[in-house]
Structure formats: structure tokens, C-alpha cells
């Protein structure tokens, strides 16, 4: 499979201290990768480096063999903070259409509107298209921002904690949307629910990275709630089983 993102010897610092050190990873076309790790570990920073909002202090990031700013048409992004400018008089449709903009596109045509609507439909927000973006709930707004990113028709989609402000039901819906896509996906998460998804690899980011290959979804998720406590119970169960076998 073709490599779509190649990060080599990447170092990054905002001020004096490096927040990312010696990061090396290649991501292949169609992969579904999770970035996990503690708060402040550098997940969002790494995402911003990949999309080109930040420049490496050392080393390189290549997207389709080019610096990210040359691959803009092929990559899209859903930011971590989604609760900005809520007073702005802007409809859901206006926001979704922003995914269609580019340097030379000043006005939208009927094809742009069609694509924006199609993506709103995909995330189940089509009927909200004339609502003001600030009037939606966090989960609804999250879905609109996913639609906006998809409206760019990217080959790579990066989502920074897309389920952070969403209730469990909404989380499931968002993961369902991501699961049904077949483009390259990177999803940042700091809760264990990500392990119920069909992710190919998990990258633990805490200044340095550690890549977990060949992840298998641990269990079928049939309960509404799952957090670290259930995870521990689950591990205990394994341990007991093994002890019995010994």
C-alpha cells in the first residue's frame, strides 16, 4: 500500500522545550489510525504538523511526498475546540460550504451546494441546514464540522478528539460515520472507547511516540457505558482465566 504520510526525525517546540521528539512514522493509504496518550502529550501538535498549521523545528512531514501546504486539496481536519465564535450569524449550511472553498474559489456553485448537502446528510444534519451554528448542541456542531471537512472530499481526514463533548449515543454515531469511510483516517482520542473501533494502529503520543501495530478490536461493544473501570474488570477477567489455566 502507498505511503500517504511520512514523518521523519520530527522535532517540535513552541518555546524552549521540545513537545515532540524524534517522531518517525509512515501511514498508508486507507489506514485508520488512533493517536492516544495523556493530555499535553502532543497529540494536537502532531495533528497540526501533519496538516501544515505548524512547521517542524527539525525533521520533516511529507503528505503524498510533498510538504503539507502543497497537499492541501487532499487533506482535511476537524479541530479539537469546536465552541468558537458561537455568536456569529452563520448557518449550518454556511459552515459545511466552507469545506468547498479554496484559494481561487470565491463563490459557490450548485455542485458545491450539492456536495455540502450530501455530507450534511451523511452526518445526519441535513435537516438542520438553516439553523444557526451557535444554537446547536456540542455533538451536533461536531457533526457539522465533520461534514465541513468531508465536503473538501479529502483523501486523508484528521479529527482531533471528535467525541470529547459528545454524549455516549452521539459518540457511537460519530464512530459509525468514521467507520463507514474508506479514506485514510487519523482520530485523536484520550478515552478507551476508541479500542472498540476497527482501528489498524494506535500511536501513543507523549513527547515521543510508540506505535502499537495490528490492533484487534477488544470486544464487541454492546454496552452504553465503558470506561477505565470496565477495562480493568476486563483485564482481571483475563488474568483469572490465565491463572486457572496454569
Amino acid at each position: 500500500m502507498e505511503t500517504v504520510i511520512k514523518i521523519k526525525n520530527l522535532y517540535f517546540k513552541y518555546e524552549k522545550r521540545y513537545v515532540l521528539e524524534d517522531v518517525n512514522i509512515e501511514i498508508k493509504r486507507g489506514e485508520y489510525v488512533a493517536f492516544i496518550g495523556p493530555n499535553g502529550g502532543g497529540k494536537s501538535t502532531l495533528a497540526k504538523l501533519i496538516v501544515g498549521l505548524l512547521k517542524p523545528s527539525r525533521g520533516s512531514v511529507l503528505v503524498f511526498g510533498e510538504p503539507p501546504e502543497r497537499a492541501r486539496e487532499k487533506i482535511s481536519y476537524v479541530p479539537q475546540n469546536i465552541n468558537f465564535n458561537l455568536d456569529l450569524p452563520l448557518t449550518v449550511m454556511d459552515v459545511a460550504l466552507q469545506g468547498r472553498l479554496n484559494k481561487n474559489k470565491l463563490f459557490f456553485n450548485s455542485e458545491d451546494k450539492e456536495i455540502a448537502l450530501k455530507q450534511l446528510n451523511r452526518v445526519g444534519m441535513e435537516s438542520f441546514k438553516d439553523r444557526k451554528i451557535g444554537d446547536l448542541s456540542g455533538g451536533q456542531r461536531q457533526r457539522v464540522l465533520i461534514a465541513r471537512a468531508l465536503a473538501s472530499e479529502p483523501e486523508i481526514l484528521i479529527l482531533d478528539e471528535p467525541t470529547a463533548s459528545v454524549d455516549p449515543k452521539g459518540q457511537k454515531e460519530i464512530y459509525k460515520i468514521l467507520n463507514d469511510l474508506n479514506i485514510t483516517r487519523i482520530v485523536i482520542s484520550h478515552d478507551v472507547n476508541i479500542f472498540f473501533e476497527k482501528i489498524d494502529r494506535a500511536v501513543y503520543v507523549n513527547r515521543k511516540i510508540y506505535v502499537h501495530e495490528n490492533i484487534e478490536p477488544i470486544i464487541e461493544k454492546d454496552q452504553d457505558h465503558f470506561c477505565e473501570v470496565e477495562l480493568l474488570e476486563y483485564l482481571k477477567m483475563f488474568k483469572n482465566k490465565r491463572e486457572k489455566n496454569v
Partner: peptide, 9 residues
């Protein structure tokens, strides 16, 4: 609305 997204476009 979102200067970062605008830059990316």
C-alpha cells in the same frame, strides 16, 4: 469563523 480551517483551504 475559523482562521485555521481557512488557512488549510
Amino acid at each position: 469563523y475559523d482562521i485555521d480551517f481557512a488557512k488549510l483551504r
